[in-house]
Each structure stands twice: as structure tokens, then as C-alpha cells.
Design a protein around this nucleic acid. Sequence first.
DNA 1: AAGTGAACCTGAAGGC
DNA 2: TGCCTTCAGGTTCACT
Length: 291
Amino acid sequence: MPELPEVETVRRGLQPVMEGARILSVEQRRPDLRFPFPERFSESLSGRTIMSIGRRAKYLTMHLDRDPVLICHLGMSGSFRILSGRSASLPGVFHHERSKDEAHDHVVFNVEDAHGEARRVVFNDPRRFGFMLFAESAVLNEHASLAGLGVEPTGNALDGTLLSELLRGRRAPLKAALLDQRLIAGLGNIYVCEALWRAGLSPRREAGSLGAAEADRLSSAIRDVIAEAIEAGGSSLRDYVRADGSLGYFQHSFSVYDRESQPCPRQGCGGTISRIVQSGRSTFYCPSCQR
DNA sequence: AAGTGAACCTGAAGGC
DNA sequence: TGCCTTCAGGTTCACT
């Protein structure tokens, strides 16, 4: 579910409550999510102080006052919500009222935040494609989950020259190449579709076939759409909410994603958005203006 | 090696 | 109403 902008939004939502907080206890309510929880999961976290919450691609990292680092992935349906500790013991007066199905509340962090407020930070994940793992901080980037990740589409690193290099020689469709986390890390189905539309490039193009001007356009489109989506607090489809319960609103800015049969929004195009399936996933694009 | 498709799991939505 | 199928923001594994 969550792509980079949603994960970054979650990180920013957790930051004010988690940074500087002390973990009093951790309730682990099942043995596994996508993977088994680490050995001594709760014991290793309890008593620690959270120094910072980081993000790499779609992974969240929780850095403590000593090892291990907690690596967390939200999978397709993972989310966090924050309850005030006091409200948590008084049903009906939660920090925010949105009550998700508590059957899928898999982990609860009981913390005391930097102001001494008791908080419950709850990880909910109906599909359980998310996971939590431990890593050694000194070799965090060599951890199996993070080691192979490509360039972040935020900041200045991703330009036309680098994108050309990454795509050179690749025979896969452009869509598939952009979803490959080893090349660019953090893009998912929504933002790949949106970036390709902005760049006027067909998702079916052979990835290695882009010219320099096209690679320039695409790298700009990727960076722009990711930056705008972060600014908007991500996209809220179905059940995605921010840690404070509010919704992101980038979904209102979709040009093609989930807009099959609707007119292409590009000025003067007049085309109609199509849905095709590429490597098992829906691609939305305008066959008229994306070539 | 690179590329494709299935698998993992639950819930929502649509068709009949 | 219920039952069935299809689909969903991701990653990993098995296969060609």
C-alpha cells in the first residue's frame, strides 16, 4: 500500500511522539507478520529511549539509545495510530475517534514521550505483509532489507544522466523498471503511473530505449510527483490514514491512477485513460499522449 | 542475468 | 440476503 510519500508521512506523524520517548513496554500480539518477529522483540525494546525515526525508501527505521535498530515495513495495509495513554484506558475518548478493527492491532508500543505524556503507538496491518526486523546500527545499510536499494527519488541525486545509466540496456517495460527497488527505491504502482503520465512516456516502452531528453523529463517528473505527494501527506485510498488519524489528499491529484475510461487530463490531448496489466499489476496511462 | 508470474493474507466491491 | 470472483499501495521466491 504505502509508497515512499505515505511512509514519509507516517514517519513525520510518529516523530513528535516517538523522538525522545522512552519505551515502557511493547505488546506483541502474534508470533509473526510477514516474517516472524525477532527473538526477544519486546525485551530488546523495553526500557530504551528512541533517538530518531528515519526512513529509507519504504522502510521506517527506529534508532534507539543502543542496538538494535528497529526496521519496519508497512507492506500493503500497515499503519500506525497514536493514542494518548490516558484515553487508551478510557474507551471512547481516544486521541482520535477513528476505530479500526482492533483484531489487526499486532503491536502496541507503550511509551512516555519527551514531555512525560503516556502514549500508545499501535501498529495495525490486516493483510500482514508488513514486518519488523532488528539490525545492528553500525551495519544498518548492509542489512538484507536495505542493502540492495537504489537511489532515493527525493533530493537532487536522481537526474536524467543517472536515470539513463540505470535504465541502459534494460529490455523490461519502463513501468517494470521503475518499480524495481534496486534502481530507484520508494516508487510504487501509483507514483510510477503518475510520473510516466507527467513525462508523456508510455509504460510499455522498453526501459533502455529512452533518449537523453526523455530521461531528463522522466527524472523531473518522478521527483516532482514524489515531492508533491509528500507535501500533500500522501494518498489515502481505502484504509490509509496518518498516525494522527487524518487523511492525505494527494489522491485528488491523480491524473491517471484508478481513472480507467476517464478523459486524459492533459490540455488538448482528448485521449482516454486505459488500464492494462504489466507483470501482474494494473497500469493506468493515456495511449494518446504517452508514447 | 534479467524478466515474469505466483505466493503471501484479508477485506471491499461488484456480479448474479 | 448470500455466494462467488476480482482486485488492492509490496516484496520475495521459483521458474524460464
